[in-house]
Design a protein around this nucleic acid. Structure first.
Lengths: 118, 118
DNA sequence: ATAGCATATTCGTTATTTCGAATATATGAT
DNA sequence: ATCATATATTCGAAATAACGAATATGCTAT
């Protein structure tokens, strides 16, 4: 039960554990988009983008729909966008803590003067 | 900028992409705990637990403190617990959708009678 | 039928992850 | 000093992930 839930979470995190796939999810948060349009915003090889889309499909994070020549992708559940937003907040908090720690160090050693040099 | 943020998210997801590590984070959400106490709740080899803890340390998800013989671990930022809660919600929503889909199929083919057989 | 697009898949290579067994390190107790 | 306990690290093997190049598939238009 709990172990199934943990496996599920791990599998989703695994699917999201690549910057390109994060980018794809964030792009799709704006709405449905063709594979080609996604590719345009990604700065990777076509094959590579398609491979990353395949990973997201396999974990049911995205769904696709064929229309003639093209394949349109969209997020299956926008809840994941909330997860990514929360991760952004987490990032900010961590960053903030690091900055504060640096400030403290500067203050302790010099009394002030936040210079770059040692 | 954005790409740095995506790399960060991907790195955290990577660190969380294993059921044992998810379990560790969830256990630590209850508060600080020694490596041994964590191990007791994990059903894995000692070495393996230690390796997973090392991964979480490397990504600064947990911090540790030595006290005599033991090492106590705790979450560096509890925001990640919120992320895991959201993932639970995501799981429930996906599960729900699957169940509803199954119900629809049963209704269409039989008019009712949600039996297990074909 | 042929050609051209959009997209997916396969293949080979290289890198990374995971695990248990064994070993190392550090602390505390005798 | 020796030993036990708690924890970490190293090693080798097997599995998995990532990438680009090449190729395949499936439409659409001619």
């Amino acid at each position: 039960m709990q172990s199934q839930l943990r496996k599920f979470k791990a599998a989703i995190f695994q699917a999201l554990s690549h910057p390109t796939r994060i980018a794809i999810v964030e792009i799709l948060s704006e709405g449905e988009m063709s594979a080609g349009a996604i590719l345009e915003r990604l700065a990777v090889e076509q094959a590579n983008a398609s491979q990353h889309l395949a990973v997201l499909r396999a974990s049911h994070i995205v769904v696709n729909r064929k229309e003639g020549n093209q394949v349109f992708y969209s997020l299956k559940n926008h809840r994941l966008v909330d997860v990514l937003s929360l991760m952004r907040l987490y990032f900010m908090e961590e960053l903030n803590e690091s900055v504060e720690m640096l400030a403290e160090i500067n203050q302790q050693s010099t009394g002030s003067a936040p210079k770059t040099d040692s």
